[in-house]
Amino acid sequence: MASPILPEFFALLSVDLFALLSMLTCLLEEKFPKAISYIYVMGALMGFGHLWVSREFLIFFGDYMRFLYSVLYLAIALANVVAVNLYLAISKKSWTLAKAWSVVVTFPTLFISIFFVYNYGHLQGAAFPLLMLQLVLAGSVVILGTSISVILSPALLKKLRRR
């Protein structure tokens, strides 16, 4: 039998997002303040602490409370993803980079997060919806691939339109 989703899954997802942000901001360090990568590492580390506290006080915290503070942490991680996107677009005026970021990072992370939160809320304690997840991921990959192709080669879109 598949394991049900625990509320802490969202905290784990947030840790991954902070780790991703840390790596990407390091890769694009000329666009960001130098300390930002380390701040995101701290964010990921806080997520680990969050999981630890959750485990130690598992008996005292109810499911609803665990879900709320895990989703709050996920919301903070997602807000950072969007904030970096806006920072690139508005403050740095790197439109191409901002578009690429929105397609490669913001859209998939928001999509996946909403998917899991919706499923947890809808079928609390249910097993991972593997078939639906695969379909959603396949759809996500198609959209992502098309978007990346269009961004890297805008002429492709024009060609497609002409046909």
């Binding site: 899954f9 784990l12 840790v15 780790a19 390091c26 360090e29 590492v41 990921a44 680990f48 630890w52």
Partner: peptide, 27 residues
């Protein structure tokens, strides 16, 4: 930059791995 990236990669891998292990132990 490569050194910074490598250090961050190692730290992040460590954090993500222990977090996943913590989640697994939670279940």
């Amino acid at each position: 930059k490569s050194a910074k990236l490598l250090v961050l990669l190692l730290i992040n891998m460590l954090i993500v791995t222990v977090s996943a292990a913590m989640y697994y132990s939670l279940s």
